[in-house]
């Protein structure tokens, strides 16, 4: 019964697949291309300005990232090379303070 049902559905599926593939290609109405081109000419400045905005956003993001990177590297270099007072004090503190079980 189950196999028979599967076979039935498979038959219908095959027919529907063929029906889908047999669909004829529709014809576009005359003057369709000109109408699309009209819209594209209209969309052209808008698309260009969108491209411009996108370009500006990426450029700004790039510049900001570079500034942050330079600042981070500078700070790291500065903190490494300058006399490290904070670290010195901490070492001193550790040397002076007796440990709990001493």
């Amino acid at each position: 019964m189950m196999a028979s049902n599967d076979e039935t559905i498979a038959k219908l599926e095959r027919a529907l697949i063929e029906a889908h593939r047999a669909r004829p290609t529709p014809l576009l109405r005359p003057g369709w291309t000109e109408q699309v081109m009209q819209d594209i000419r209209h969309a052209a400045p808008q698309a260009e300005s969108e491209d411009g905005v996108e370009c500006l956003i990426w450029r700004t993001a790039g510049i900001a990232a570079t500034i942050v990177l330079i600042a981070t590297v500078s700070w790291a270099v500065w903190s490494w090379t300058s006399p490290n007072e904070g670290m010195g004090l901490l070492i001193e503190e550790l040397e002076v303070t007796p440990l709990v079980f001493d």
Binding site: R14, L16, I17, E18, A19, A22
Partner: peptide, 12 residues
Amino acid sequence: HCSEQAHRREAA
């Protein structure tokens, strides 16, 4: 026969 049926309007 199945293929013939698939090309009918009802199939689509």
